[in-house]
Design a protein around this nucleic acid. Structure first.
Lengths: 257, 257
DNA sequence: CGCCTGTTTGATCTACCTCAACTGCTGTGG
DNA sequence: CCACAGCAGTTGAGGTAGATCAAACAGGCG
């Protein structure tokens, strides 16, 4: 569970919100300079190691906030050990359930993670005082709900091959967006998840994940530079395999969202 | 697609919000009398027949609002015809995506439905003016997100038998809550969905749904008074079959939520 | 009464799971 | 600098839950 690809720096704490790398996308992105100053006073940073639990299922959560760096997975677990990942959160995503005492899932750091946190009570007070904060949170939750429904289609109806292709397309879109360039053949990105975590996300077994990777590789659609680095050789074909509806991604299907 | 069980009356339009049957649970439930008067001015009712499309996938939605009576299903559809239900909405639930022009799913009336609607632009203006409205909408979306994640666990990891039991438990909880009585053996409720719709909801085929119904019936766990009426004979066993985590439903697992 | 639609039941097929062995990397210690 | 332990990932062989295809059945309605 250690030594995950692309460990972020975590060296210089931003400390002032105005320097924050997620300033434009996080829950605070609509906040005015004055509002931001208020948030600045009550926020605090905390780091988590890969594999470390951030929130336990059903646990009372005293704090909540944004992911500044790293990747966090949300899981639901059945008593007999079956696990399903129900969310995968990246920098700027919001973690925690405001207005509700406990979360019905657990959250685990997948990579090294830095969170920008608030105490629940203080955050909720801010929510009531700053309408920009509440508005942005509402928007983010609406987007997460859409993503969850997209995932329900995958879990309910897609084949293993379609599931892996869909997962890789999501990472490819993210990578292209991060690097500010268009999606095209040759696009390369790091897999933040182990095969086991991918299996939990896709609702299949680790062996099936592995077989589907091998299959895509043998067909020349992707290459694995190493276990944790994917190069997409034929992006259009990968997209075809997902059977995703082009309407779901604006026009053109291959645009960076 | 006609003649669905338990067709609601739809006779007397409430017309004034204060008489509205969903007044205490809908998006307007936090609104003050003054705020409610504002909403009253711009709201309008519209009825939909069973099977009628309320919103098409990707369609620009001009209006959005609350379900007053009836049941609405949200679907995602793949080009090859595979369908997955991604939401099932009951009276007081909110339908539509504020702050976003189009919905990434389609919404279909399952029973006779009455909606309390607003024009998008007017509703969004109200959202900005009335913080109670925005707060309640945020809470409802957080709850829907939790429900969606619960469903992801079902779709990713549960067996057909577990899926049907989970579905029946949800309806049983709803029925008990509606009738204001505790959950117990003998509880009877109408199935608002055809076998086909149940299959789309549970991510399995219609034949598998039917087989699981037969299996539960033969074991004496449920009885089917007719095709659309379920009587739960052994509630505790039905709950055992779901393998749901008791923590997810407050204490006691069988309490009416 | 016979048609239409929704549902049940049966027989077979298959994608994925399960169990098990193998590979290859990485780090550690002689 | 090699040996080898430990672990993540891959590959193989066989089993199974649920899909698919097909036929019988039941209730409502003209």
């Amino acid at each position: 569970m250690s030594n995950i690809a692309s460990i972020p720096s975590l060296l210089n704490v931003p400390d002032r919100c105005s320097d924050c790398p997620i300033r434009n996308r996080a829950v605070c992105s609509y906040s005015t300079p004055n509002e931001l100053a208020e948030l600045d006073k009550i926020k605090f940073y905390r780091d988590f190691d890969p594999g470390q639990e951030i929130v336990g299922e059903g646990e009372m959560t005293q704090s909540l906030g944004s992911i500044v760096e790293g990747v966090v997975a949300l899981h639901k677990v059945m008593e007999d050990g079956r696990r399903q990942m129900v969310g995968l959160l990246f920098p700027s995503d919001f973690l925690g359930r405001p207005l509700r005492p406990s979360a019905p899932y657990d959250a685990v750091a997948i990579t090294q993670v830095r969170m920008c946190l608030f105490h629940r009570s203080q955050f909720e007070e801010m929510l009531s005082q700053q309408q920009t904060l509440e508005r942005r949170l509402l928007e983010m939750m609406l987007d997460e709900l859409d993503a969850a429904r997209e995932w329900m289609l995958l879990l309910g109806r897609k084949t293993a091959r379609e599931r892996l292709a869909s997962f890789l397309m999501i990472l490819a879109r993210r990578a292209a967006a991060m690097e500010q360039k268009a999606m095209s053949d040759g696009l390369t990105f790091a897999l933040p998840l182990t095969r086991e975590a991918i299996a939990e996300y896709l609702g299949i077994t680790i062996e099936t994940v592995s077989r589907q990777f091998s299959s895509l590789r043998k067909e020349g659609i992707i290459a694995l530079d190493n276990l944790r680095t994917v190069r997409v050789l034929r992006l259009a074909e990968l997209y075809e395999i997902t059977h995703d509806d082009p309407a779901d991604f604006g026009d053109g299907a291959l645009n960076s969202a």
